[in-house]
Amino acid sequence: MALPKGFLFDFDGVVVDSFDSHYSAWTSAFRELFNEKIAPFPKSYAGKSPMIIAEYFCGVIGKEAQTKELFFLKDEHIKTRFKVPKLLPGVREFTSLLSKENIPYGIASNATKQFLKNSIYHLNLNFPTVFGVEDYIKPKPAPEAYILLAETLGFIEDDFKDIWIFEDSLTGTKAAKSAGMIPIGITTQYSEEELKKAGSFLLFPTLLEAYQHLTAK
């Protein structure tokens, strides 16, 4: 089958399973700041920007005024106590295929740039173009992240309808749809039904099944 013109990837839940990496940093930062146990992570916050997540955790104990303080401390903990996330299936196969076919691709994530760079370095991944939450005025679910990445890769608006975006969250799926591109759901976080309702065009358990679908004779 003919391949799309470009492929854009979310990071957490698509390229890596990073829940433990992030939540351990939230937990240690929260304990340092408030000397209290952090609340469980709510599934509905998957894919949201770290500032919104920090606001949630602070809000649980009525400390919203310290949202920024928690955000920056968590970012510090994720650097100094970095926990390498787990690579999900199909990533290396996918990037090898796209490099071989000379198809532009990159990452646009609501995670911080430092976390993305550290993860890519430690996992030895081939993602030369990477954007994190600091690169946007409006993070996902706004479309800015994916529009910025697509334009950086050399695409114009007419190309957007032929660009696939791999997303595991409802937040990111909405961003992909708003950007006028094709959201492809990865069901590591949400069900097929939930992702389809948010706008996913196709659904796969991981990138490996998506890769197999695209390379099937």
Results as ranks from 00 to 15, higher is better:
Met1Asp: 06
Ala2Pro: 15
Ala2Met: 09
Leu3Trp: 14
Pro4Lys: 08
Pro4Glu: 09
Lys5Asn: 10
Gly6Tyr: 02
Leu8Asp: 02
Phe9Ile: 07
Phe11Ser: 03
Asp12His: 00
Val15Glu: 00
Asp20His: 10
Ser21Asn: 13
Ala25His: 11
Ala25Asn: 05
Thr27Glu: 14
Ser28Asn: 11
Ser28Tyr: 03
Ala29Met: 02
Phe30Tyr: 15
Phe30Ile: 01
Phe30Val: 04
Glu36Lys: 15
Glu36Arg: 15
Ile38Tyr: 14
Ala39Ile: 05
Pro40Ala: 11
Pro42Thr: 11
Lys43Gly: 08
Lys43His: 05
Lys48Cys: 05
Ser49Lys: 14
Pro50Glu: 10
Met51Tyr: 12
Tyr56Pro: 01
Phe57Met: 12
Cys58Ser: 08
Val60Ser: 06
Val60Ile: 15
Gly62His: 12
Glu64Arg: 13
Lys68Tyr: 13
Glu69Val: 07
Leu70Val: 05
Phe71Gly: 02
Phe71Asn: 03
Phe71Cys: 13
Leu73Phe: 02
Leu73Ile: 05
Asp75Thr: 13
Ile78Glu: 14
Lys79Arg: 14
Phe82Asp: 03
Phe82Trp: 11
Lys83Asn: 13
Pro85Ser: 03
Leu88Ala: 01
Pro89Thr: 06
Gly90Arg: 06
Val91Thr: 12
Arg92Val: 15
Phe94Cys: 07
Thr95Gln: 04
Ser96Asp: 10
Ser99Glu: 12
Ile103Ser: 14
Pro104Gln: 12
Tyr105Ser: 04
Ala108Trp: 06
Asn110Asp: 12
Ala111Gln: 03
Thr112Cys: 09
Thr112Ser: 15
Lys113Gln: 13
Leu116Thr: 07
Lys117Thr: 04
His122Asp: 01
Asn124Ile: 00
Leu125Gly: 01
Asn126Lys: 12
Pro128His: 12
Thr129Lys: 08
Thr129Ser: 11
Val130Ile: 15
Gly132Ala: 07
Gly132Val: 00
Val133Asn: 05
Val133Asp: 02
Tyr136Asp: 02
Ile137Asn: 13
Pro139Leu: 11
Pro139Val: 11
Ile147Phe: 00
Leu153Lys: 09
Gly154Met: 03
Phe155Pro: 08
Glu157Gln: 14
Asp158Thr: 06
Asp162His: 04
Trp164Ile: 00
Glu167Leu: 08
Gly172Glu: 05
Thr173Glu: 05
Ala175His: 10
Lys177Pro: 01
Ser178Pro: 01
Ala179Asn: 09
Gln189Glu: 06
Tyr190His: 14
Glu194Asp: 11
Lys197Gly: 00
Ala198His: 08
Gly199Ile: 11
Phe201His: 13
Phe201Arg: 04
Leu203Cys: 12
Leu203Tyr: 00
Phe204Val: 02
Pro205Ser: 09
Leu207Gln: 02
Leu208Ser: 02
Glu209Asp: 14
Ala210Pro: 03
Tyr211Phe: 15
Gln212Cys: 06
Gln212Gly: 09
Leu214Phe: 10
Leu214Asn: 01
Leu214Asp: 03
